[in-house]
């Protein structure tokens, strides 16, 4: 009995110290660390390495924001969240932002009271089949057994796709990606469906990746992006424009290699405004002039982050596709820094 009292007294102490009611920016600066919600592990997007350091594409967004706000890309507390706990963790203030390959949907944005600050990865649902099946298009999947993770949007997309194409299928419900992988390899299903990036990562880990093909059809839109709480527009702006700074940096040719040189001043005024040698954009955000410079220094520009975590030179080997700059035929389009 007394031990419980003791524990609850600790809780009371924790409660008293945790009280705070300032803006998110002030909270984060007072705390000195950014609490960033990530997944419990998605290959290439967020996972701790063998030294316990978080790595990945979503993790890089957290680090860039931490660098912009706190000046230290490592000043991030990564809070692993599951599909169920992610939104409550954000709503309750346990995390300051969520970067957990979360699809931007109407109801999440409007009904749940969150603000999506942008899209850092345009994904879409795809199919993977064994090559020996001889299937070359998803429209040939009549009567197939399909391994699918339950409780996700992919489940609903799948039902829609097969209905629209007037085909039947037999779902094999599965809890996690790792389990799905085992089931698929064991032949429990003909087809595995999930986000295309996940399929690529999964296929890359197979013993014989060449024996499996990812079908060309992408049956849904999955714009994945960082999320913050509704109602603190300044904090949302910081998240949005940090992401935009990474994207704009790629467009403007600012890389981690030439960053110092460019920050000294160039003859391109937009670069100067972005990196803080001209204008007062940082001040308008409530940060200092070099915020974007630090954000880019954290992991490079958008293209560098992409290449280092999930790009074609990594085992995951994703092509830029939709995620190329708008000038390259993609959808990455940062509004002007002006």
């Amino acid at each position: 009995m007394k031990k419980t009292v003791f524990l609850s007294s600790l809780a009371v102490a924790a409660l008293a110290t945790g009280m705070a009611s300032a803006t998110t920016l002030e909270d984060v600066q007072a705390r000195g660390t950014l609490n960033c919600g990530v997944s419990t592990g998605v290959n290439g997007f967020s996972a701790p390495d063998a030294n316990g350091v978080w790595q990945g594409f979503d993790v890089a967004v957290c680090r860039a924001v931490a660098a912009a706000v706190l000046g230290d890309p490592m000043a991030v507390n990564f809070v692993p969240t599951t599909g169920q706990t992610r939104f409550t963790a954000l709503a309750s203030g346990e995390i300051d932002m969520l970067a957990r390959n979360t699809t931007w949907t109407f109801s999440r944005d409007v009904d749940l009271g969150f603000t999506f600050v942008g899209v850092n990865y345009y994904d879409g649902q795809g199919f993977m089949v064994p090559r020996e099946l001889g299937v070359s298009s998803a429209t040939e999947l009549e009567g197939a057994t399909v391994c699918i993770q339950t409780g996700t949007t992919t489940e609903l997309n799948l039902a829609d796709f097969f209905r629209v194409n007037n085909m039947s299928y037999e779902p094999v419900p599965i809890e996690t990606n790792a389990e799905a992988q085992q089931q698929y390899l064991a032949g429990a299903c003909d087809v595995y469906t999930t986000d295309a990036s996940g399929l690529a990562a999964t296929r890359a880990s197979f013993e014989a990746p060449g024996d499996h093909v990812i079908l060309p059809e992408i049956i849904s839109k999955e714009p994945l992006g960082p999320v913050v709480r509704h109602g603190d527009d300044q904090w949302a702006d910081i998240g949005r424009w940090t992401l935009n700074a990474l994207i704009a940096a790629e467009e403007l040719g600012v890389t981690s290699a030439n960053l110092e040189q460019m920050a000294a001043g160039t003859n391109n005024p937009e670069i100067n405004r972005l990196l803080g040698s001209e204008g007062s954009l940082g001040e308008m955000l409530g940060l200092d002039a070099e915020w974007a410079r630090r954000a880019i220094a954290a992991g490079g520009n958008y293209g560098e982050i992409f290449a280092a975590t999930i790009g074609e030179s990594t085992p995951i080997g994703l092509a830029r596709g939709l995620n190329a700059q708008w000038t390259q035929g993609g959808l990455m389009y940062a509004p002007p820094f002006r």
């Binding site: 998605v42 290439g44 790595q55 890359a204 197979f206 013993e207």
Partner: peptide
């Protein structure tokens, strides 16, 4: 699961 989510070890079960 987090270990399996890294590129190095994905597929280990």
């Amino acid at each position: 699961s987090a270990i399996r989510a890294t590129s190095d070890w994905q597929g280990v079960y």
